Amino acid sequence: MTDTTPRYLNSGKVLPATLPFSEAVQLGNLLILSGQLGNLPGTLTLAPGGIAAETKQMMENIKTTLEAHGYSMANVIKCTAMLADMAEWPAFNAVYETYFDPSRKPARSAFGTSGLAVGARIEMECMAAK
């Protein structure tokens, strides 16, 4: 393998293996995560309790996926958040910001959607680099 050969990764620790995509793709030192939901690991069942609970579970899922492939939250350089309702932005942000060192905040984009998979309130994709 060279640094220009993508590695398609699936640890099986968060997402069911039957889904039609990789949980992450590694290219050199860059790790690109597929969108993560606030699903309970190994299922498509969302964490109960609304946006705050889903956000916490989603962030834990991101952390688990990163660690499964040798990365950490400190390696995250970019996130894109998709919210089913932008009015829930403050509740999402209150949980999100607890996962990052204030001096090393990733670049981030966010937008509202007309719907997310399995009725989720939040989905986020991230990129990490070493």
Rank of each mutant, 00 (worst) to 15 (best):
P6M: 07
P6A: 06
P6W: 08
P6E: 06
R7A: 15
R7K: 15
Y8A: 08
K13E: 10
V14D: 00
V14E: 00
L15C: 04
A17Q: 05
T18D: 07
T18Y: 02
L19G: 00
L19F: 02
F21W: 12
E23K: 07
A24Q: 01
V25F: 08
V25E: 04
V25Q: 04
L27G: 09
G28M: 13
N29D: 15
N29A: 15
L30D: 08
L31R: 06
L33W: 06
Q36A: 10
G42K: 02
A47T: 00
P48I: 00
G50L: 03
A52H: 00
A52S: 08
A53S: 07
E54L: 09
E54I: 06
T55N: 01
Q57I: 06
M59E: 04
E60W: 10
N61M: 04
N61L: 06
T64M: 10
E67K: 13
A68I: 07
A68E: 04
H69M: 09
S72R: 12
S72T: 15
A74D: 11
N75R: 08
V76R: 04
I77A: 14
K78M: 15
A81E: 04
M82G: 09
M82E: 12
L83G: 05
D85Q: 08
D85W: 11
D85K: 12
M86A: 11
A87L: 10
A87K: 14
A87H: 13
E88H: 14
W89V: 07
A91Y: 03
N93T: 08
N93V: 09
V95Y: 02
V95M: 02
Y96W: 13
Y99P: 06
Y99K: 06
D101T: 09
S103M: 12
A110R: 10
G115H: 02
A117F: 11
A117K: 08
V118I: 07
I122C: 01
I122S: 00
I122K: 00
E123Y: 04
M124G: 03
E125H: 11
E125T: 15
E125G: 15
C126S: 12
C126T: 09
C126I: 09
M127V: 14
M127L: 15
M127Q: 13
A128Y: 09
